[in-house]
């Protein structure tokens, strides 16, 4: 078996992407058996399953490159809140369907250019995950766009909720484009996507959807952040408890 060389930078980056996908998928699962129609149940859980698949590959890669012998399960189930590096936007409570849709729109409009860029990553595993993920997230964006337009350009009540959901989630989107030393080093090595190139793509995608949906671009300049360094929102502990308790209650259990 070939030895994978330790690469802590790429490991940390893969962990960020994996945590984003896993936590977002877990949040979408809150809609299981709660959607207005069974068709939406299935649709939301399909999105969640796509994200879970991405997370598995990314956490596995993070574990390999970290060189401490941790596998995807160790990383998913045995880390506490401060060790999670997902952006805050994916852990936000989904609220009503409009807010979940707003979160999906803002995240998918970022993951589409992200994975498109990462198809050319110098890390072969990231490039491989990207090749698969780019088609999945294109559908996620289409799903979010359809519902944003339907709700935003729907009844007065649906438009009010869609705008409110958008206002709630909007400030958190910008953490996705933050540049820190880790990202700088990896962009220079051709491993990571350059966030400064992703943001204009994101903005034009989102603004086009909002215009079609007759929604206003939020004006707030508040920019909460902290997820990348393990400082999470209050609800995150509950989310992790639900995600991890079976594994922790029955260590080593398998299907």
């Amino acid at each position: 078996m070939s030895q994978v060389l330790t690469d802590l930078d790429t490991a940390a980056y893969a962990l960020r992407l994996g945590d984003d996908a896993l936590v977002h998928g877990q949040q979408l699962c809150a809609w299981a058996y709660s959607s207005p129609e069974i068709e939406q149940d299935v649709a939301m859980l399909n999105l969640a399953l796509d994200l879970l698949g991405q997370a598995r590959a990314l956490l596995t890669r993070a574990g390999e490159l970290e060189g401490r012998g941790r596998d995807e399960d160790d990383l998913a189930f045995l880390r506490d809140e401060p060790s999670w590096t997902n952006a805050l936007i994916v852990e936000l409570d989904g609220g009503d369907f409009a807010r979940t849709t707003a979160r999906q729109l803002l995240v998918s409009a970022y993951t589409v250019p992200l994975w498109t860029e990462l198809c050319g990553s110098a890390d072969p595993v990231l490039a491989g995950v990207a090749g698969k993920a780019v088609k999945e997230v294109a559908y996620h964006l289409d799903h979010a766009r359809s519902w944003t337009v339907r709700l935003g350009d729907g009844t007065p009540e649906s438009a009010r909720r869609m705008q409110a959901g958008l206002e709630d989630v909007w400030p958190y989107a910008f953490e996705l484009f933050a540049v820190d030393p880790l990202v700088e080093r990896l962009v220079a090595r051709g491993v990571a996507a350059d966030p400064t190139r992703l943001e204009p793509v994101w903005r034009s995608t989102v603004e086009a959807v909002l215009a079609e949906a007759r929604l206003a671009v939020p004006e707030t300049t508040w920019r909460p952040a902290g997820g990348r360094s393990g400082r999470h929102t209050e609800g995150f502990g509950h989310l992790l408890a639900e995600l991890q308790h079976v594994h922790r209650s029955h260590p080593g259990a398998s299907w």
Partner: peptide
């Protein structure tokens, strides 16, 4: 929406 729901429900 029907087309997208069909994709999600029947072609997974």
């Amino acid at each position: 929406m029907a087309l997208r729901n069909a994709r999600d429900v029947y072609t997974r």
